[in-house]
Nucleic acid binder design. Structure first.
Lengths: 193, 193
DNA sequence: ACCTGAACACCGTTCAAGT
DNA sequence: ACCTGAACACCGTTCAAGT
């Protein structure tokens, strides 16, 4: 009697690969922030010992790199691509802030928090900032500003966004989501008249 | 032969009190940020074992509370008091940004970074934000804005400041100190015309 | 190829025992 | 009153040994 080989992947493979760890890591990042991307707890949740981890990754930092790369692809690239499609510059700016402000920016803030300790996070934030400032600056130029002025305004705009996100997270800004949204619009109206 | 009792405090007392730990903690905070306020390294630098620490404090968190309180008294209260003395509102605003931007805001940024993990830090930042926004708002009112408008502008202004501090720290903002100062002035001129 | 198990280093916390 | 010393829990990292 010959047994048919199983053609569908087993529900829970006994052996893991890099992919499994990365998935679990991203999940942990979304639930508990950068600190939650930790070897021992992850190993526990995968039903395996810590030693197993080090066959797939050289260090916890390497895992974090991979996890952040994934996060960036999903949560940053997609969003920016969608924005580029909006032609009216003012409307595009509005959409950038709308998107950024609506869903709780928890992961973003968690990344801000971790930037100091984690070089990998620093790099992600740097890219994120550069790209968003570029989107903002382009919209400003299309709205009629000089390149230098556009860059200044865009930078301030992004800085204010970062600051508002931070303040909302740590409770320095006690405002309802509605008030926050109004403040964002106010910011745009003030900086890009 | 009777020995004279020593009237000056010994250079290194064999026994420590709360004060010694707080001092060492503040020093550590300034050198290495919130994470550096750690029991074991501190004990080591004080030439004592970890067990000693727990006679003076209930936990590492309690130490951090005390250290932050001290930091706030020295680095926040003093500065704000000095500002209140400037009568011209525009000049006062300029001075607030000057002071905040000139000396590297490293501790401030470190606090921003730690807010997520450390409730004590959150409280400090909350107070700091409230007070600075109040100073900004008052200056705006004195410059002729309505109270509501003043509050909005002040909040945006502070948010931009927080964001700029953060971005400078993590390298998202690659600008010279001179450029940063110019940007700060630009911010003020834009938000408080 | 992937994993276990035990080791070591590091930090937070507790506590009985010392002075 | 203040401190030691040893214990325990937790996480990161290494590595010889298993399948």
């Amino acid at each position: 009697m010959t047994v048919q080989p199983c053609t569908v992947p087993a529900v829970s493979a006994e052996r893991l690969d890099r992919e499994d760890w990365l998935e679990a890591g991203l999940d942990a990042l979304e639930r508990g922030g950068v600190e939650a991307v930790a070897v021992v707890p992850l190993a526990r949740s995968l039903g395996v010992t810590r030693g197993s981890f080090y066959w797939h990754f050289g260090s916890r930092g390497e895992l974090l790199d991979g996890v952040l790369e994934r996060w960036e692809r999903v949560h940053s690239d997609e969003v920016l691509d969608a924005l580029q499609a909006i032609e009216d510059p003012r409307r595009r700016l509005g959409a950038l802030f709308e998107r950024s402000a609506s869903k709780p920016p928890s992961i973003f803030v968690r990344l801000l928090d971790a930037a100091d300790r984690e070089p990998a996070v620093k790099a992600v934030l740097e890219r994120s900032a550069r790209r968003r400032i570029e989107v903002l600056a382009q919209a400003c130029r299309e709205a009629g500003m000089s390149p230098a002025e556009a860059r200044r305004r865009a930078t301030l705009c992004y800085a204010a966004y970062v600051g508002l996100a931070r303040m909302t997270a740590d409770g320095s800004l006690d405002m309802s989501p509605r008030e926050r949204a109004a403040l964002s619009r106010h910011l745009l109206a003030t900086l890009v008249p």
